[in-house]
Write a protein that binds this DNA or RNA. Structure first.
Length: 171
DNA sequence: CGCAAGATTGGC
DNA sequence: CCAATCTTGCGT
């Protein structure tokens, strides 16, 4: 096991700490062909607990959100608009359903493009980042600067939650 | 059981 | 502006 792979202690923190900390980290994907590609994470968004109306866990514990109730360090993927797989990492301790959406990696901006590049599918749901042979996160670079802004596409959650500046990106 | 909307993207 | 494409949650 690689020494630089980020373990559960990295993800067992508040999602508002983990989301910005992921900027500059290295996302590693080992494809079925055996090819390994690495990408620097450039943009993330935090979704924080049942009270966050923009977070899927605001619907409570369902088959879809169940993985978010696990301890941090596992993968949460879901299909949106029938064609895009969104990549998320669960954070926080067990029972505090939060996750970080990976909105951008170097060369690929937008969560849909990220999922397409990484060739994600439902089989990644619940996979542990510390154990996975095909997707994990490693120590990366020190970002020169991180800026935050409002999350994208969550107006439906109402003003209180839509205006939270929980989107983080490399300056 | 039907249906509207979605943490999006790309084309017209 | 709007279609693609399908899962999910909610209303009936």
């Amino acid at each position: 096991m690689d020494k630089t792979r980020l373990g559960n202690s990295f993800f067992l923190r508040d999602v508002l700490d983990v989301a910005p900390a992921l900027i500059g980290k290295t996302l590693v994907r080992r494809f079925n062909t055996g090819e390994i590609r690495s990408y620097i994470i450039t943009e993330t968004e935090a979704y924080r607990g049942e009270e966050d109306k923009a977070c899927h866990a605001s619907k409570g514990l369902t088959p879809r959100t169940a993985v978010m109730y696990q301890p941090g360090g596992v993968i949460y993927v879901y299909l949106i608009y029938g064609m895009y797989w969104m990549l998320n990492f669960v954070t926080s301790e067990k029972g505090n359903p939060s996750a970080v959406l990976i909105r951008g990696i170097e060369g690929f901006n937008g969560p849909g493009r990220v999922g397409r590049e990484l060739q994600l599918d439902l089989s990644f749901y619940g996979e542990e980042l510390l154990q996975s042979e095909r997707l994990w996160v490693e120590k990366g670079i020190t970002p020169v600067g991180i800026v935050c802004s409002e999350r994208i596409g969550v107006d439906y959650a109402g003003k209180k939650w839509a205006e939270k500046k929980w989107r983080f990106l490399q300056k």
